[in-house]
Structure formats: structure tokens, C-alpha cells
Design a protein around this nucleic acid. Structure first.
Lengths: 134, 134
DNA sequence: TTAGGTGTTATAGATGACATAGGACAGTTG
DNA sequence: CAACTGTCCTATGTCATCTATAACACCTAA
């Protein structure tokens, strides 16, 4: 579990860690069922207080990325599909709007943005679609 | 200047306001050279302290969205192009990665993500490209 | 059953971000 | 000059973040 922290970043430690775990899952380097290191191990490896690790785990569970089981550990959750659709759609729209307006003010155009998204998508391990290798 | 605040949102007021101004500019509802309402007017309209408005303006100037001129007011800046390219590219990559991993964990696939980005792009007022109406 | 691992909860304190309040200063415009 | 603009400052209160420390609760395997 290579997790690195940027102490200068304005984003809180517990969020930096959560984001990195999410990325590992999205890239398929962590797969559903995989066990995460223990709270105390993560705390030691990242030189962070166990309570801060706990915040990370709470965040990850809230986002359905992991499942926590007292006594046994934390595990990567199975892929999510069954969330209320309108809320999800709205969140996606907000995320896309944020990317686009920020990129706009960085001076990029539509082509730049689309290509950046496509590059990132290439690294993601999406589950196979129905009727793939027909 | 219709600016609305969500008092329940975890994102700070000064950032909510900055984001809304950025969106107005990106959509072409505010154009380069346009004058923003005065600090005190904005403070009154949004029921926010003038110092908080000031934070918003500082943020917007840092991101090259506006130019502040003491005594005369704040104006929408001309479109940015001359920022050091490698840093910009890196920021774009980070933004795209954030969108994609969050969307992934919301259960969306590559097609969903691409179409959400395209929908947002349709609302943006990009400057004309060279040799357009030849 | 016991030992040692797991996650969980609680308390306390340091630090800094956020926002308000109120006042004062400085440049621009008519 | 008067009235507008942005700017700065100090003080205050609140909240988020992170640390430190300790104890508790659950699970699993020897």
C-alpha cells in the first residue's frame, strides 16, 4: 500500500489518503475483497495518527469504497450500482462542471479537456460490459 | 449578479462565490472588461461580510479571472493563454483524474463520463479558433 | 479459554481556516 | 472636495483538522 502524503497540500490528510485508495481501486490495483492494512499499520506507515486513518476509513465507507468489519479488518467493497440514480447523476454533473470551468480558466479548450479525460479513462479498470466478446 | 449561497455546504463561502463567478465567465454571461459590482454591494446582496468578498476577489485575481483596480473596481480579465504550460497541463490532468475516479465510484462508466463532460462543454463559451469562418 | 490481532470510542489540546464586526486607509472619479 | 472604489487591520467566535493517549469491543486462531 504505497500511500504518499503532501504536507504542503491544503487538502486534509484524511482526504488525501482516501483519494489515493479510490485511485488504486479505480485502476484495479485494489480489487473487491482485498484486505486493507490495519489502522495501526497504516498509521505507522504514513506517520499519521490512528484517529486520522479512521477518518479516512469513515470517508471511504461513506462512499461505498470499503466495508469495515470490527475485529477482522477493512475490505474493498464490491462495485456499486444500486445508488439512487437522480442524486448520482446530479453529482456527476457537478463534477463535470467543476472540471470544465476550471480547465476553461486555465486556458484550455474543449478538445484539450476531452483528450485529458480520455487519457485518464484509459487507465481505469472498468468492469466488462454485457455481451463483450460475442 | 445573481449569486446564491448554500449555508449548509462544506465549501467556504468565499470559494462558493468565486466558483459562481468563474461559471458566469465560462458561460459568457460575464465577458472580459465587464465590471463587477462593488465589494460593498456584493456584500450587501449576498449578506456576507465585505472581508469575505475580498477573499473571493483575491482568489479570482490569483486565478486570472478578474483584475482589481483600487478606486475604480474589479473587471473580468482577458482570456488567459500565457501561463507556463507544464504546470497547466499537470493541473488539467489532476482535475480530470479527480472527475474520473469520483465518477467511477459513483458507478458510472466511461461512456457516462464522456457524455457528462460533453454536455457541460456545450454550455461553455469558448473563444473562436483560428481560421474558423474562412 | 486465552492471546493478540482487528476496528471503535472517548477525551483533551494545539493549530489554523473561516467568517464576522468595526474601523481606518488609499486610490479614482466626477 | 465628495463620494465612490478597493485595501488593510485588529479583535472575536466558531469550526475543522490533527495529534496524543487511553480504553473498549469484536474476531480469530492457537
Amino acid at each position: 500500500m504505497l500511500l504518499r502524503l503532501d504536507p504542503l497540500s491544503p487538502t486534509p490528510v484524511f482526504e488525501q489518503l482516501a483519494r489515493q485508495v479510490k485511485t488504486l481501486v479505480a485502476k484495479g490495483l485494489l480489487r473487491p475483497g482485498d484486505k486493507l492494512p490495519s489502522v495501526r499499520d497504516l498509521a505507522r506507515d504514513t506517520a499519521v495518527n490512528p484517529n486520522t486513518i479512521l477518518r479516512t476509513l469513515e470517508l471511504l465507507e461513506r462512499d461505498h469504497v470499503i466495508i469495515r468489519r470490527q475485529g477482522s479488518g477493512c475490505f474493498v467493497a464490491p462495485r456499486t450500482t444500486d445508488l439512487s440514480t437522480p442524486a448520482r447523476k446530479s453529482q456527476l454533473t457537478t463534477l463535470a462542471a467543476h472540471l470544465v470551468t476550471e480547465a476553461f480558466h486555465l486556458g484550455f479548450d474543449a478538445t484539450d479537456i476531452r483528450s485529458a479525460v480520455n487519457s485518464t479513462l484509459d487507465e481505469i479498470d472498468f468492469p466488462k460490459r454485457k455481451r463483450s466478446t460475442s
